[in-house]
Each structure stands twice: as C-alpha cells, then as structure tokens.
C-alpha cells in the first residue's frame, strides 16, 4: 500500500513536469508562429523582438542586391525592430491620428490591410483618401459626375477640402503608376505641385510627405511604353527632387521591395504586375511606424 502510494506521488510529479515542459513548448510555438499584432507592444518597455519572428518568415537572400538587402535588414533588425514601448506606441498613434493618406489602388490595398492587421490601432484614426486609378492629374480636376476623387464621409471630395475637414496635420501622398500614363514625368510633377499648393492654401500648417513610387513586377505582361521600371525610376528620382524643392518630406518604402533593375520582387507581388501583398505592407507599416518616431534611416527632408 505504501509502495503504491509512492508510485502515485511519483506519477503525479512526473505528469506535472511533463505538462510544464509541454506548456512552455506550446507557448513558444504560438508566440513564434501565431499571427500577433504587427509589432506588439511590450508593456514592460523593453523589446522582446516580435519583429524577428516576422523577419524569419521570409527569405532575405538571393534576390535583393547586397546594398538593398543590407538596408532592409538594417531597418527591420537593428536598431529599429525593438518592440515599441507604451510611450512610443502612443506617439505613433498620435502621429497617425493627425495624418491622412492620399493614394490609389495601392493605398486602397493598404487600407484593407490596416483594417485587418493593425491590431495595435496605430492607424485606427488615420484619414484615408484613396480611389482606384487616382493620381495628381485626377486630383486637380474639378469634381464632376465621372471624375475620380476620393469619398470622404460619404461624399466625393477634393483632396484639399477633405484634408481641411479632417483637420489633418500632415498628409502622406502615395501616387505612382497612374502618374505616368498619358503624362510625362515633368507634367506629373507639375500636377503634384498644383495639388500641394492647393492643399497648403486650404491647410496652411499641414506637413506634406511624398511616399516613394513602387516598381513593376519585372515579367508583367502589362508593361507599356509609359509604364515601365525605367520611367518609375525616373519618377522616383524626380520625386526626391520635388520634395527638396517643395519643402516636403520623402518617405522611402519602395527600395525594400525591389528596384529598377530587379523590379518588384516576386515575393511581394499580389498580382504579378503592380500591386503588393501582405508581406510588402508589413514593411510599409514598419517604415511608417518608425518614421513617426524619427527612426527611419532614409529621412532626407523633413518639413519645417
């Protein structure tokens, strides 16, 4: 009887030990492979690098030229992939609550991505002004029944009016592929300049940021004389100049997804043409959130 009691005690102890080990194993597995919020906040304020598990899901070798690969690793690894502290997270939320994004289908896709993935609510109050096929050329046209302007609060609106209504303190403009067809790059930049002027007339204190144009998937069958990576590269260079000449900020997201030589990398394309997938938007988000904290290594111009 005494002997069997000993066995029972040993058995229970063993069971508890096994449960403890298995429980830890499961916790580790889920913290790595689950789909947590994009970069969840560490409530203790020190980083636990959930960003690393996000990085582990993709191969960074073989496709990007070394310089780009290094920069991508730099921005995603150190020092920027520490978890955000509560204070940093609050700063990011505040930054983007006062921000509007203006853009085309790429921004429509990002809008959907954020509604699904922004579980920390960094962009929950961001104003989204986007439309399929939208461009500066469309934006400066007067509103008509058949014109492309974004819907805001259920009404088709000029960008400058919507920004004023939303009381946005800053605007991120994401125009690219639709800028080129039917207009040369100089004309595209003139259109953008008109738009920026109108925005500043209605909202004099607003900060304007231009987000870098993306590239086409290299083997896209829809390449045209206008819409190709050479022109997109030229547009990228000219947009940097535009920012310098127009006191605007330039946010670089595209170089992490490809370049004019390799095009949009296959692992980031959603349609083997011009649109991008969740992995690409993960990178956008990381760049944007770091940008809000002044951590982006590629800040060239910051509006005064």
């Amino acid at each position: 009887m005494k002997k069997s009691n000993t066995f029972v005690v040993r058995g229970i102890t063993l069971l508890l030990l096994v449960m403890l080990v298995a429980g830890n194993f499961i916790t580790v597995r889920f913290s790595q492979s689950g789909n947590p919020s994009f970069f969840s906040i560490n409530s203790h304020g020190s980083g636990n690098r959930t960003g690393q598990s996000f990085l582990n899901n993709r191969s960074l070798t073989g496709e990007l030229p070394a310089g780009y690969r290094d920069e991508l690793e730099q921005i995603l690894n150190t020092p920027t992939d520490d978890n955000y502290t509560e204070e940093e997270a609050a700063a990011i939320r505040k930054f983007y609550a006062e921000t509007a994004f203006v853009g085309d289908s790429l921004m429509m896709g990002y809008n959907i991505y954020l509604q699904k993935n922004d579980r920390e609510g960094y962009f929950a109050k961001t104003t989204m002004l986007c439309a399929y096929g939208f461009s500066a050329r469309n934006a400066i046209r007067p509103i008509g029944e058949k014109t492309k302007h974004p819907l805001y609060k259920g009404k088709k609106m000029l960008v400058e009016d919507a920004l004023k209504l939303a009381k946005s303190k800053r605007v991120f403009i994401v125009f690219w592929a639709n800028e080129i067809p039917g207009a040369d790059i100089d004309k595209a930049n003139q259109n953008l300049e008109i738009l920026v002027q109108r925005i500043r007339e209605k909202s004099p204190d607003i900060e304007v940021y231009i987000v870098s144009p993306c590239y086409l998937y290299l083997k896209t069958p829809k390449k045209t004389n206008f819409l190709n990576n050479n022109n997109l590269y030229a547009l990228t260079l000219s947009r940097r100049e535009f920012c310098k000449n127009n006191n605007a900020g330039y946010v670089e997201v595209s170089k992490y997804l490809g370049n004019e030589k390799v095009g949009l990398l296959e692992k980031y394309t959603s349609d083997y043409h011009i649109h991008v997938n969740k992995d690409a938007y993960d990178i956008w988000t990381k760049v944007f959130t770091d940008y809000a904290l002044g951590r982006d290594p590629d800040i060239e111009v910051v509006p005064k």
Binding site: F7, V8, R10, G11, I12, L14, L15, V18, M19, A22, G23, I26, F30, G34, N35, K116
Partner: peptide, 26 residues
C-alpha cells in the same frame, strides 16, 4: 503510471493547442 501520465499530458496539450488555435483566429 508513467505511460498513463504521458497519455494524460498529451491529451491536455491537445486541448491547449485547440483553444489557442481558436484564439488566434484572424
């Protein structure tokens, strides 16, 4: 008893795994 303990542990782990899966639904 050891075998019984292991069987019970595996069962408990399966339960944990199932509930975790539901929690992480997107």
């Amino acid at each position: 008893i050891v075998i019984l303990s292991l069987v019970l542990s595996v069962s408990l782990c399966s339960c944990l795994l199932t509930s975790c899966g539901e929690k992480t639904a997107d």
